[in-house]
Design a protein around this nucleic acid. Structure first.
Length: 195
DNA sequence: CTCACGATTGGA
DNA sequence: CCAATCGTGAGC
């Protein structure tokens, strides 16, 4: 299935389907880091917690664009958060990738002995740090590129093998739209940001 | 133009 | 519990 097709569904449908899929981060030097998505949240037009709730602005404009692109924003002036744009073009909708399990430990990860290797991407800010994703990637399209080129893409099938129990809860860290149950994670997974 | 605040994190 | 740190955008 063409990724563009299923990503054009509303974020609350795409978010749980992304669990278990692998976000592949490839660098120009040939290094590839694979991150299995274990926690997601959905944000949509009409959702008071969504950055695009009020209107289209320079920051949120990517969310109004076609699905399959990246919406990356800076948070607290310190970190970045990665979203995958979903839904029909013209309607703001995106899935926040909150946590993932990496297949290796990148050398640029700050040597913090307190954090277990399984948890280097256990949070949206940490995930962007681990995959070296920042504002320069805002608007990028999920697209497999050849070796030697920088790129970000998804692998695996949506809602792949139902080998885990998926838990659905309310979202984390927001002050509006707190009642919407639009957070999903793989039950018991060590890389989930918070339980 | 101003200024309060945030889809976070790490440390006290 | 609280500070770090700064772009955004709502409101004047």
């Amino acid at each position: 299935m063409d990724p563009r097709d299923w990503l054009s569904q509303p974020a609350p449908l795409v978010a749980p389907a992304l669990l278990g899929m692998v976000l592949v981060r490839q660098f120009a030097d040939g290094l590839q880091v694979r991150a299995q998505i274990v926690e997601t949240e959905a944000y949509t037009a009409g959702d008071p917690a969504c950055h695009a709730y009020r209107r289209k602005t320079r920051r949120n404009q990517v969310m109004f664009g076609p699905p399959g692109h990246l919406y990356v924003y800076r948070i607290y002036g310190l970190y970045h958060c990665l979203n995958i744009v979903t839904g029909a073009e013209g309607i703001a909708s995106a899935v926040l990738i909150r946590a993932a399990q990496l297949d290796c430990l990148p050398e640029w990860i700050p040597a913090n002995k307190r954090r277990k290797p399984a948890r280097v991407a256990a949070g949206p800010g940490l995930l962007c740090q681990a995959l070296r994703i920042d504002g320069s990637h805002n608007g990028w399209r999920l697209e497999r590129v050849e070796a030697g080129q920088e790129g970000i893409w998804l692998e695996g099938s949506p809602s792949g093998p139902a080998q885990w129990t998926i838990v659905q809860t309310t979202r984390i860290g927001i002050t509006r739209g707190v009642e919407l149950p639009w957070r999903w994670y793989i039950k018991g997974h060590p890389a989930v940001s918070r339980y």
